[in-house]
Design a protein around this nucleic acid. Structure first.
Length: 680
DNA sequence: GTGTTTACTTTTTTT
DNA sequence: AAGTAAACAC
């Protein structure tokens, strides 16, 4: 089916239409929540293709893989074309693409490893130990953040941080030696590449004539630099300062101001009509966000009619909260004939998901938790991936150390220390030290012959698996590897108390292998080799794996993960002081941080189309003990006329809890609070 | 030299 | 509850 865009004018409002038709020159689209942003972007691309602009000239940058994928499918649907040459990617994925092509010019080899936070911290720890840092001074978590700030120019060295300068140098050298780059490098190295090698930049500028950046309010200075380096005149950026929620990762919505300066003649288009939410929900959102001082003034309006009041409930604890949510979902499903995937539960932190997931399992309600502790952060997954990384890049010390004795193969602490010394004196990666030690005539290394045998078989094992680098059947080979190292036995041994846990972990490994299989058999996968797989994998999160699986399931996610999405019925769980706004944000960042938390809450509210429930527990379990909680300050910022409160349950013992539950069940056929269920 | 036990802290949000 | 580091046992 060919594109039929002749009715564009009827399908879009005047501002949207203008945004779609303005393909030449710089434009800034300020798109309020629910104002049809995705629609505008996809129509805009479709229109450009329709106007004869080749796919290869268009580059669209997003923040999440999910957004990129969604954009691609929508354009595909709209145009009915195959999109082989259209580039829609996240900033980081695009960075990888650039580096895969030309990183050799910067001194790395093309089979470089990408280090995530865990890997980065491991490398910092390792380097710190070599430099004799005391355990006290070596808070790798904090140092990792510091290094990221330094690398991206967010911070300079200060008297306080100066003691880590040498460590930073060591860290950087480590990356170079192990042929690895970290997440920040995925943006900063392309910038450097473009600066130092104008011919490379020219190639990209020549190719990409039309640039588009989504969620522009969340671009960092580095990402903005990258964009600016590539941009000619035809740049469209789309954003909303009220939805800027990534400042802790370097996002700065001042880039919107910078854009006005750097691209003179820029056209600004504002999308202020909300098509998503009821007037009630929108009024609540506006009421909250209006408390922020530092923002572009906006008047979002909705033509969608009143809607139901926003329901606020204060359950006794998180179990009661989870029960309230599942009960509500059940009855709304029945009453309004909704499907499970119409519901979304939003949380501030990942840890909030546990009691909810338990309740869902118990009640047999299917759910998907997107994001969360990323699938790829799981130990069992990282173990297997580490094997693959070492196979792809022997010099990757961080991953080598991870697997060299996992499962146990008799290579213990002292051996590793010895190898480290050898590596340090020769100034080579561990792998080379190992090969040197095992091929030496006598055991001058101080490593026993039997241990050297263990090392030899390890090296042989890795070498034998290099067949993965080419040819077909990657998943099959990985499965064989997992069997050969007897990973399941290891999991059982490591989880002596719970075979269930071991089994669960093994299932995760299984689903990793399955996803490899689908990936390599997907016709859209261009080169199904190990390198391509590894480059891709580090940038993915859980929900990028099981595509299509989320149909018919209740959605659970953090507010951050929900950006850009919408659901008919939304629950915001844990709307308590200390959670939103998060205690850490309040104590560390002062007012600016509270404003960001408020934006976060605003994003949460504006995900809802028809119905919004907010719950705040009176007590919550934290660490060991139970603490008393207060409702979030943001709750008071919702105009009272829009809210219906649930009657709080009085008792906590089991019997009373049953009664409350029974009352709650009834409450959906007959409101226990006057006004609930009626139009406000 | 290696593997197991025990004491101890802890990380908000994600590419 | 889970991951880490140091102490302890083999």
């Amino acid at each position: 089916m060919a594109a039929d865009l002749s009715h564009l004018k009827d399908e879009l409002n005047p501002e949207q239409y203008q945004a779609v038709m303005t393909t030449e020159g710089p434009i800034l689209i300020i798109a309020g929540a629910g104002s049809g942003k995705t629609r505008v972007i996809t129509y805009r691309i479709a229109h450009m293709l329709d106007a004869g602009i080749p796919q290869s000239q268009i580059l669209a940058l997003t923040f999440t893989n999910k957004a990129a994928r969604e954009m691609e499918t929508r354009v595909k649907e709209l145009t009915g074309r195959k999109l082989q040459n259209l580039t829609i990617a996240t900033f980081h994925a695009f960075g990888v693409k650039i580096l895969r092509q030309d990183i050799e010019r910067l001194g790395w080899r093309t089979n470089f490893s990408i280090y995530d936070e865990t890997d980065r911290n491991a490398l910092i720890k390792e380097t710190g130990r070599e430099l004799q840092f005391t355990a006290d001074a070596l808070d790798v978590y904090k140092i990792g953040i510091l290094f990221s700030d330094i690398k991206t120019g967010r911070k300079n060295w200060t008297a306080a941080s100066d003691m880590y300068r040498q460590l930073y140098e060591g860290y950087q050298q480590g990356l170079r030696l192990y042929n690895a780059v970290d997440f920040d490098d995925l943006i900063t190295l392309p910038i450097r590449l473009f600066r130092e090698h104008p011919d490379v930049l020219a190639r990209y500028k020549d190719r990409y004539r039309y640039l588009m950046v989504d969620e522009f309010q969340d671009t960092s200075h580095q990402q903005y630099e990258l964009m600016r380096a590539l941009a000619g005149q035809n740049v469209a950026v789309v954003g909303d300062d009220d939805q800027s929620i990534y400042s802790w990762r370097g996002a700065d919505y001042q880039n919107i101001i910078n854009f006005e300066h750097d691209f003179p003649g820029m056209k600004e288009i504002r999308l202020e009509q909300n098509y998503r939410s009821t007037e009630t929900i929108l009024a609540a959102a506006n009421g909250v966000i209006s408390h922020n001082t530092n923002r572009k003034d906006k008047t979002l309006w909705s033509g969608n009619g009143g809607g139901k009041p926003i329901e606020i409930y204060m359950p006794e604890n998180e179990t009661a909260e989870a029960q309230f949510i599942t009960e509500s979902i059940r009855s709304i499903c029945l009453q309004e004939k909704r499907k499970y995937d119409d519901f979304c539960i939003l949380m501030r932190t990942n840890t909030q998901s546990r009691p909810l997931e338990e309740q869902f399992l118990q009640e047999n309600i299917p759910y998907v938790m997107s994001g969360g502790t990323s699938f790829f952060q799981r130990k069992e997954i990282k173990d297997i991936i580490s094997y693959l990384r070492v196979i792809a890049n022997h010099d990757d010390d961080v991953n080598l150390l991870r697997i060299i004795n996992t499962p146990r193969r008799g290579i213990g602490r002292t051996t590793i220390e010895r190898l480290n010394e050898t590596a340090r004196t020769l100034d080579v990666p561990l792998w080379e030290a190992i090969t040197a030690v095992i091929s030496a005539d006598e055991s001058e290394s101080g490593i026993s012959e039997s241990t050297r045998d263990d090392l030899r078989s390890f090296v042989t094992f890795i070498e034998n698996n290099r067949t993965m680098l080419s040819g077909k059947g990657l998943a099959k080979k990985v499965r064989a590897l997992v069997e050969e190292i007897r990973y399941f036995d290891w999991l059982i041994a490591e989880n002596p108390k719970s075979e269930k846990a071991a089994r669960f972990k093994y299932l995760n490994v299984e689903s990793l292998i399955n996803s490899m299989d689908t990936w390599e058999n997907n016709p859209d996968t261009k080169d199904a080799n190990l390198y391509a797989y590894l480059n891709r994998i580090t940038l993915l999160s859980r929900d990028d794996l099981d595509d299509g699986e989320e149909k018919g399931k209740v959605n659970l996610m953090t507010i951050h993960a929900a950006k850009g999405l919408e659901f008919p019925v939304v629950f915001i769980a844990g709307a308590e002081e200390g959670i939103v706004p998060h205690a850490r944000a309040v104590e560390e960042g002062g007012n600016a941080a509270v404003e960001e938390e408020r934006r976060l809450f605003y994003v949460a509210i504006t995900r809802a189309r028809d119905k919004l429930f907010i719950s705040a527990c009176r007590h919550r379990r934290r660490l060991r003990d139970v603490i008393a909680c207060e409702g979030s300050r943001f709750l008071d910022e919702i105009p009272a006329s829009l809210v219906a409160y649930h009657e709080p349950p009085q008792a906590v013992d089991a019997k009373a809890a049953q009664d409350i539950l029974a009352a709650m069940r009834k409450s959906f056929t007959k409101p226990i609070v006057p006004g609930f269920g009626r139009k406000g």
